[in-house]
Amino acid sequence: MGINFKQETFRDDFSFRNSPEQVRRFPFPFHEDGYMYSVNIEPHVPGAKNTVFEHLFDVDEHYVSEMHDRALVLAEDPLRCQSLPHMTLAGWDTLELLMTEKAKSYPEHFSLTRDGDKWHWVNRPLGIDDRFTFGDTSTLPYDPLEYITRQSQGDFAVLDQRDGNLWMDAGIVTTQADWSLDFDIGMNFFEWHAPVPLAHEMGVFKRALKFLMALQQGQPARRHNWTMTINPRLDTSPENYHKWGTDRTTVTPENVGDKVHLRVEIQMFFRLPRSNALLFPIRCYLIKMDELVTSPKWARRFHRVLRDLPPELAEYKGLVRYRPTVVEWLSKYDDGAPTSPGFGPD
């Protein structure tokens, strides 16, 4: 049985919705009734069935529409995908990882046949059937990183590892929470994290970098991050701020349920074998407040997290303007009952 891919939009009329099954598998990010930054890294091992962690790379009902949205962004702004010349090998590593995992996890939708360096890739949902020579960029319509990430949900940063640091030397970024690849390209771990409040002082980044530098192949790790987005828009980029920035002023008590979305990023870390680079996929999941409150525990807990969020974090995440309205709306779903520990619904 395959996935039922939906046709929907992440712009203009915003027809994006989650099916009830998709709501149930939403990666709710709060294990307790509060939130603060931490070095929240754990092994990225396949998880339970019907969760987003069932496979290393989750493909869901939004796949086809998200890939269409990515193509629209790239057509308008090619700089959303960049790769410095020394990163081509890492691009091939990425292509291999994504193709082999997709074909293994979803054989009904993807297949890969390898005969030495002669590869045959079939992506049925997107209607792609290509033969190419692994390692020879001239046999693909795009460079390897762009080719495979036009077929993979989520953003991807590819970090070169050298001089005791990680360098953002390649990536594709079209579904981001207000940061820009074109701005960050060539920066190191501390430079691109410079705008983040509090975490530097807490030593989060120093410890995280040490862990990432030592990450081994075959032992991927993950963490999550979250923010909020008004309207189910994937491309909340600095480049297009003029298109979405004003959405934040449109939240009213009447439209919170439909307009306000919790945005969760599952960020993964993979060591790439040939290039020794680090692959950082950032997979974005959106859920409307109306959908979120179908789980009483999630509603109670998110109300408490948002209400008690440190002001620096609210400021950085851009929630200041509409936070009171959303907290007020959520309070109707919080009777003060205790919540159970852990991520799952009660």
């Binding site: 862990f211 075959g218 032992q219």
Partner: peptide
């Protein structure tokens, strides 16, 4: 923060 099996 240590990940899955590392042994072959």
């Amino acid at each position: 923060m240590r990940a899955g099996s590392n042994r072959i």
